[in-house]
């Protein structure tokens, strides 16, 4: 019947509106659980999420060794030319020439944090770091060299 549906409509509408108002009213009156991060003040206690992607870094161990073989898989995987791998040839103790990286140049200003380079890396040499304070006064500071000076490749990484 038409009238019955009409009244049912009104009843349902009012009920749903009241449910909504009740929910937001609850949040308004229970003003304890705050999700706002007061950023510069809480820098000491700030916890970034695991999955947050801030920039690409190359972890080094205590002996200043990294795992990068210089295979340029990351450079090929990058969609917008963020990573440039500069290689050199090293002569090891047995007199054999071996390819190694000289510099791994990373342009932070071009990076979209898409994570494709990390996925592409066969030896897990690079990863995403949760840093986010990237603002600098000079744009050239955003071009970074990921491997530390004087670092060399870890033993056993091919």
């Amino acid at each position: 019947m038409f009238l019955k549906d009409y009244i049912k409509d009104i009843y349902g509408a009012i009920k749903s509106l009241l449910v909504g108002l009740n929910r937001t009213g609850y949040y308004f009156t229970h003003h304890k659980e705050i999700i706002t991060e007061q950023y510069p003040d809480n820098r000491a206690t700030l916890v970034m999420a695991e999955r947050f992607k801030g920039e690409v870094v190359m972890p080094h161990d205590a002996n200043n060794e990294h795992r990068c073989t210089g295979c340029t898989a990351c450079e090929l995987a990058c969609p917008n030319g963020t990573i440039k791998v500069v290689t050199k040839f090293e002569v090891n103790a047995e007199g054999k020439k071996k390819k190694a990286i000289d510099k791994l140049v990373y342009h932070l200003e071009l990076c979209t944090m898409c994570n494709l380079c990390v996925v592409a890396c066969p030896s897990d040499a690079i990863k995403m770091a949760p840093t986010f304070e990237h603002s600098v006064y000079d744009r050239s500071l955003l071009t970074k060299i990921l491997n530390n000076p004087g670092s060399k490749i870890m033993e056993g990484v091919e």
Binding site: H31, I34, T36, Q38
Partner: peptide, 12 residues
């Protein structure tokens, strides 16, 4: 009011 309803702090 907007901030309190959305569990935020609002302008401070």
């Amino acid at each position: 009011v907007a901030a309190w309803i959305q569990i935020r702090l609002g302008p401070n």
